[in-house]
Design a protein around this nucleic acid. Structure first.
Lengths: 152, 152
DNA sequence: CTCCGATAGTAAAGGTTCTTGACTATGTAG
DNA sequence: CTACATAGTCAAGAACCTTTACTATCGGAG
């Protein structure tokens, strides 16, 4: 008998993290829908903070979002179909494109930022501001660390 | 000009949480593959801590995992195809099934637990034990809170 | 200038995870 | 016995992302 008494927690860190992440995504989407933005998906929303009225390269997006260029290509097409972004040729490089927020897109981006802030304020109300900010910083460090550790 | 200076962070809590969660999943899968368990997927792995040598009801799994019964049904079928679980009729209820770990499944479960513990130890090495445990608790509270808040 | 490797992007196909909607069969309370 | 809830299933499809393979352009070495 390795564990005669059940030791409550033990190694439930990863499950907790994943559950919190999912809950966060669901809450964020609900928030956004409540603001009138239906037809959005989590992946599309996740791109909004990376976009810009001045335009960004798809490749830059793919690096920041840590997904393939193809994945970004698909998401950008979806955003374009919903008229939240437009794609233009990059005048400095014939191969490249520039993805730029439309006016509609700027409005959406603001709504996304507002939703994120609201969720953060919910967390702060529960856990306290300093704790949440520390938590945020710890999560970032943890993500960086885990990517390095990746048992290569 | 609402924000003349860029205030570094602001509302990056949700993105940080999601990124950390993804990194955790990726690291966990890499760990498991390194232990010789290929052919697993994140969703299947996430079910392992909920399973049991004595057997559990699919419905119970679906409640704990917070997904539909159909989703559990699919995942259990996959685990069964890989011979990590077997399904038996529940003698106390003709409608119900019992999902039970096979010997192979018990071994896998142990490997999953080990991988989770390893990742947790990585986090502890970076952030400190008390901090990680507090983080874990905070994440659980946060998830509960967010599910209640869901802007109904 | 030409050639070549690196970079930007695209196309197609498929894997994984999960949901909705519709349905069957059994249990249970009144 | 009827009525409703519960256990589980099937089918279809949405969402997200990857791999493989490809085209076109860029930019430097010679």
């Amino acid at each position: 008998m390795k564990k005669p008494k059940k030791e409550k927690n033990e190694d439930d860190f990863a499950p907790a993290l994943i559950a919190a992440s999912r809950a966060m995504v669901a809450a964020g989407m609900a928030e956004l829908i409540a603001c009138g933005f239906d037809s959005m998906t989590p992946a599309l929303v996740s791109l909004m903070p990376l976009l810009d009225k001045d335009g960004v390269r798809p490749t830059a997006l793919s690096q920041q979002a840590r997904v393939t260029k193809q994945a970004i290509g698909q998401l950008v097409r979806e955003l374009e179909a919903r008229v939240y972004v437009e794609q233009l040729p990059d005048s400095t490089d014939t191969r490249a494109k520039i993805v730029r927020l439309t006016k509609r897109g700027v409005v959406l981006q603001a709504a996304c930022a507002k939703a994120r802030r609201k969720l953060q304020s919910v967390a702060i109300a529960k856990l306290g501001k300093s704790k949440v900010l520390r938590l945020q910083q710890d999560l970032i460090e943890l993500a960086v660390l885990l990517e390095k550790t990746r048992t290569r």
